[in-house]
Design a protein around this nucleic acid. Sequence first.
DNA 1: TATTATATTCGATATTTTCGATGATCACCC
DNA 2: GGGTGATCATCGAAAATATCGAATATAATA
Lengths: 298, 298
Amino acid sequence: MKLPTTKQLRYFAALVEHQHFGQAAQACFVSQSAFSSAIRELESQLEVQLVDRTNRQVTITAVGQEVATQARLCLRDLEDLVNVARSQREPLTGPLRLGVIPTIAPFLLPKILPSARKAFPKLKLFLREDTTEALHDQLIAGDLDLILIAFPYEIRRVEIKRLFKDPFLLACRQGTKLVDPKNYRFNRLNADSVLLLEDGHCLREHAIDACRLRNMETVSRFAASSLLTLVEMVDADLGVTFLPGMAEGSAMLRNTRVKTYSLTGGSHREIGLAWRKGSARGEEFGRLGELIAACGAK
Amino acid sequence: MKLPTTKQLRYFAALVEHQHFGQAAQACFVSQSAFSSAIRELESQLEVQLVDRTNRQVTITAVGQEVATQARLCLRDLEDLVNVARSQREPLTGPLRLGVIPTIAPFLLPKILPSARKAFPKLKLFLREDTTEALHDQLIAGDLDLILIAFPYEIRRVEIKRLFKDPFLLACRQGTKLVDPKNYRFNRLNADSVLLLEDGHCLREHAIDACRLRNMETVSRFAASSLLTLVEMVDADLGVTFLPGMAEGSAMLRNTRVKTYSLTGGSHREIGLAWRKGSARGEEFGRLGELIAACGAK
DNA sequence: TATTATATTCGATATTTTCGATGATCACCC
DNA sequence: GGGTGATCATCGAAAATATCGAATATAATA
């Protein structure tokens, strides 16, 4: 079977992106004529028309769209190949697409990034923040190389490395009447007095499980959509909440009247990395994990 | 980023396969010198050593192994691209890797294959028989394009098309004392008198669910590893079983004393196709599904 | 009808790939 | 120890391919 060349795929992907021969050619650093003939060669080899060209506009045909999707897939795998080679030659250099959940990112990244820059100066971290589920999908789809998430989480088709435990803290406004932070009994709290993040954030489930909130009536039906909102609500004494230990001393709590208290009983979540099962870069990711664990322990 | 060329990957994959420059070059229909320099060029672009060469043997390095894995992935994507284009140009032509579970294959394939050959003469069906789970893994891994399985089955990351219902039949030896086929009551059967396939075959679970076998003691602890064995056991009057409707009149039951009886209550499994979510060939697969459904209805 | 913005065609040139012959290295054997 | 054969690397010439820039073609626009 006659396979298309890498160059043809790069050119065609650029054409689909720009919808314009001249601009796409420029983006590929070749003359428009060379570009044009490469596209025509690809069409002739595949024996299908990929683009309809009039002088005023190019339109990608239906077949073209599907070939383009596949072409992008090929190109990504080719890039991965280069990255695999590079990471073997010299681990933790070059691009690395890292996904982080929003209940970790604001606390841990400010510690990780300077350390990583120092330890792995050639590493180029591309960051994405999203829920565990969305990050997992992107990991499997190949849009991410590595994700930093919280456990327990039922997660398939990946390898994981647990890094460290992150204890939960009770957070309430200083002097609140809602709870005695020295001697709390959550299941005796008024209805709706425990504030949590909205569904989809694993922190919500982790807090419920880890802190053994059995009486769900105490959990407010108003859920915060971000940690910042959550802290604002606690600062307004609308309720109490549980924050990850790594939030202690963070910028988010500065200039608020929110205080945090340790919980007895070791309630915690666990922070860890996950990557696609069988990835050639597992060992490399593990090394990055050690650096992150060191940051988390501080 | 400088990406390797398709040719480099083809050559390198061949080298890994043959472990020999000369033979690999021959397999690629180029001279040994051209081949050799292409490999060296790939190594120089990736800046890693992929093979250790002594004059007596070549050894793929650890990096080389991982690059080879990725290279094979790239090559498969490229082939898929060509197939996507071809299937658009002319649906249901060229190679199609179809997985079928063993409780469908012997009954349906003899009907499907002649019809398919007639309807799509250019279609080259490569068949593989395995359990649903194994087929699913191979589908996701890209070793298969399409699988023909039985539902209900919890299956992720795929699109499915249900084709037709396949009723279960009671099968027992003619004149058996184990059950009155006209007026059966399974949950009153003796212990160990219902024979089923061993774990891993979906037919086992489907029969248990669909035929509402609540008293698990009636199910024999001796499980058959294939349908043929199962029929042999029933023929020896070791027990009764449930066979898929499509087995009726099949070669397997000929020259046996095994009789089949319809069940009241519409107990059935459902036959359907599944393919990777988002595959560009979904519509094409659907058309093949219609042909299979027509075969199944007969 | 002239202008503009586009894609294609064409001939010359540059680059890359390939080939076949030769060279170098190593294991093996007498 | 020297010959032999198998192997991969190297080299220079030849072939194939890709690229460039200029000219050409086409259709919308003014």
